[in-house]
Nucleic acid binder design. Structure first.
Lengths: 235, 235
DNA sequence: CAGTGGTCTAGACCACACT
DNA sequence: GTGTGGTCTAGACCACTGG
């Protein structure tokens, strides 16, 4: 049996999908009773819905459905997943894949000792068969024996999950803008000097270990980076 | 009296700050007893710390301090707050501020009816007295009577909070890359064709009402967009 | 096996909005 | 005043790790 929270989360998402923006949900005690859970359990499910922007609460007044125009989510995903979410078919052309020795700041960013082995994978990533971005990924070698023997033209996140049971749970990303150099423009099919979106990512598993360090350059005419930011802090 | 959660949140942050990466915290029952709260209350505080990346839990094993290199937060902030967090002194030069009638897709994005009034504010934003970005903000006029009579060279978020009790709680942002046009290059002090980071933001209050629609163009040589992404879903 | 975090309950009291 | 979400408690059982 799956947890109650997951069950009522799915049920609540269904109900919310059928409601209008700013419509009020039943009060928590009623909702808890209707779903056959305690109020605490219900509130745990409501909390995740609230954090993902589907609902909002007004203390003393009620819980309401959020405006859908704004609820688009911005969860962590790999390139393939990202492209499918945008309605495009992901693809890859492998440019190079080799073990390398990492030193200095690169080793530090990868979270390994100076002089240790890592895998370097360069790919041209496609969306609907057209170039979308050039991506260079670096992974520590130790946790991923035989990585380069696998098919590297698909989603790397899927490969890590299925072959090594490693999940990229969180990623620190930095996004900047550059103009295309001759090599990039040739690969991506744009003119030299055209704007590119540069994304630098460090991916970590659920225990905070560094799994990947990736640098990607996206065609700015085909891609923009979407995200939802929230004020944080307690409650 | 402030809530227990806030109190123990602060206390836990202090303790965590004094611990090494991957060091284990006391077990939950002990921690709850030491802080004089129930385990449920403690877990609520731990949940916010976990979501903001300060700690991670391993079921059956314990709760651990995250690696600090990765814990930099990416909460929503206005330009002024953002610059101070980066150790720079924010400033502004007001380019224009006027009421405008919004129509079509702009009205839709602002969440107001076609033909309604809005305030348009254009500013050159400075960091350490040097140009950092050109920002055009649009706000619905109705909720903010007399907005343009205030000093607009400081943080807009502060102004909304102190004068209108409106808090921008969440923002939907889209980041892309462009090259500087003649006007932008003149204002920002860069060459034409230099890369700029284009940020399009829709800011909402805690009830999901649209508060602002902003388009900013940052000098890519001085600014990059940092964020932490997480896998979401239940539990 | 013992120890840990994850889930879940039933109930209480509070602060706040006014449907 | 009535109804709502926000906070907090004490206790129970489960699933998983091997500290």
């Amino acid at each position: 049996m799956t947890t109650k929270i997951r069950r009522i989360d799915a049920e609540l998402r269904r109900r919310i999908a059928g409601m209008a923006a700013h419509e009020r949900l039943p009060r928590e005690v009623d909702l808890a009773h209707a779903l056959d859970v305690s109020r605490s359990t219900l509130r745990q499910a409501l909390g995740t819905l609230q954090r993902s922007g589907l609902i909002y609460t007004v203390p003393g007044s009620g819980t309401f459905v959020s405006d859908r125009r704004v609820t688009k989510g911005s969860s962590l995903s790999g390139f393939s997943e990202d492209m499918r979410a945008r309605g495009m078919e992901p693809g890859s052309r492998l440019l190079s894949a080799a073990p390398v020795v990492v030193t200095g700041s690169v080793a530090t960013e990868l979270g390994v000792a100076d002089g240790e082995l890592a895998y370097s994978i360069d790919r041209l990533r496609l969306a609907d068969r057209e170039p979308m971005c050039v991506e260079s990924v670096l992974l520590p070698a130790t946790p991923f024996p035989g990585l380069l023997t696998h098919d590297l033209t698909g989603g790397l996140y899927d490969l890590l999950r299925t072959e090594y049971a490693v999940e990229v749970a969180t990623a620190q990303q930095s996004v900047s803008a550059v103009t295309a150099d001759p090599e990039q423009s040739a690969l991506l099919g744009v003119a030299e000097g055209d704007p590119l979106l540069a994304v630098h990512r460090i991916g970590l598993d659920d225990r905070g270990h560094i799994v990947e360090r990736a640098v990607s350059h996206y065609r700015a005419d085909r891609y923009s980076f979407m995200l939802i930011a929230t004020r944080d802090g307690v409650s």
